[in-house]
Design a protein around this nucleic acid. Structure first.
Lengths: 243, 243
DNA sequence: GAGCTGTAGTGGTCAGACCACCTGGCTGGT
DNA sequence: ACCAGCCAGGTGGTCTGACCACTACAGCTC
């Protein structure tokens, strides 16, 4: 193994970017090409570093980067593994966008959510199972018997999560999950709920549930779009007033 | 070393996860709380490490992680800066999902794209400017006068990118950009274009363009949905046959 | 004043050491 | 033969300190 063989390396010597960046691309490529399967264990950090001719520190940075991206998973004392590469794993970082966005971008995010949530709810109306519907009802009633904002928020999230799951598109569900991250909603709702929006929210949720029971996709789409749209419009006016 | 630092830190001593993970959260929190503004320069790696009571190596891993997430940007010899935190910065990682997805998830991604692309195209029909429309036409004709798949692909991407940009929702545009990443499309198209789909694609693009010129959102929505839906359906049958 | 140059400071990389944790085999008993 | 407990090796996690590559800027030269 003349690893980075100094003289004759020819093409491979393309010094593009940092060595860490290169390592990231190489590992990503290995997975994309199927040389690394989901769940499979990678060589040790020390091995990988030696193999690519870089130091362990640099390799660790590459691994850390792929870890936060949800591509790899490091288990202390055991080894490094490729995740299952499922939608949830890879789209976890989507929450960061929601958490760090402010001002106009919050409206944009809600607009995206409105589009996706209404579609997901419509799909769910056609595909939801009895069990899933029962769970939706569970969160709906739980939301109505308490006044603790924290609890309401939790059941609200779960309510939509079950519906998104019933739509049968894990990728869409994962994106919606990110768009509804706890901190994101908490920030927006802090003001929203203080305007007597609780009652309205409950009405809207009931409408969504009704459409699901009736297995009416169009009604479900409309109800979901209206639900998100309410918050969206409220946020728009909020932003306008702040300026 | 007073390890967990000052007294006022309170609960901060909670030894949750790795020190690097903690550092990531702390920097993220600083940005979320507004203590770090977009574009602002951070202290040096050495300073940050000392401030959080960790080694430079660990801090570097944290910085690297936030760099790949598009939150920070490191400039060799100059310093570390917070990015503008625009949609494009933070959603760059979305391409990774598209690149590492295979099988059924590709269909799911196209389904998401169909929903968003049709909405974006509808919005664009109402908002697109003359200049943007001219650019759309440029890519449309350029796509029709060449037979080089690479070039066609490039103009195809640009065609949709301009439209997404004209929709006025940067976040949506950034997501669509990720969903149409070069490698993703190249993989799907490799087979698609070999079935005489070129002509059909050109017809569909022409239909989208017509709807934009007519400023007809509904027609634009339908044309875009049909366009993506074609590829989606083709992929569905492909997957079915492979099994 | 414009242009060059040197230098201090920054991120990038490397090497080696130690720690914390998991795993699997061995030991000893039953 | 079986099982619980111990133990050693290997792995990721962390720290240290050194050097390199690059940038920025002050100060010098012309």
């Amino acid at each position: 193994m003349a690893d980075t063989g100094e003289a004759e390396n020819g093409v491979g010597a393309a010094p593009k970017g940092t060595v860490t960046q290169r390592a990231i691309e190489q590992i990503k490529a290995m997975i994309a090409e199927g040389r690394l399967e989901p769940g499979q264990r990678l060589p040790t950090e020390r091995d990988l570093a030696a193999r690519l001719g870089i130091s362990r520190s640099s390799m660790r940075e590459a691994i850390r980067a792929l870890t936060v991206l949800g591509v790899l998973e490091a288990r202390h004392g055991s080894g490094i593994y490729v995740t299952q590469l499922e939608a949830g794993d890879l789209l976890e970082t989507f929450g960061v966008v929601a958490d760090l966005s402010r001002g106009p971008r919050l409206v944009e995010l809600l607009e995206v959510r409105r589009v996706l949530e209404s579609t997901a709810t419509a799909l769910a109306a056609a595909r939801i199972t009895a069990d899933q519907l029962a769970e939706v009802e569970k969160h709906l009633t739980a939301m109505n018997v308490t006044d603790d904002p924290e609890e309401i928020l939790a059941h609200d999230l779960a309510f939509h999560r079950v519906i998104a799951g019933a739509a049968g598109n894990d990728t869409m569900a994962a994106i919606l999950d990110g768009l509804s991250s706890r901190t994101f909603r908490a920030r927006v709702w802090r003001g929203y709920e203080e305007e007597g929006a609780f009652a309205r929210t409950r009405r809207e949720h009931a409408a969504i549930h009704r459409a699901l029971v009736a297995r009416d996709p169009e009604a479900a789409r409309a109800a979901a779009a209206a639900h998100v749209g309410e918050v969206e419009q409220w946020l728009r006016t909020q932003l306008r007033e702040q300026l």
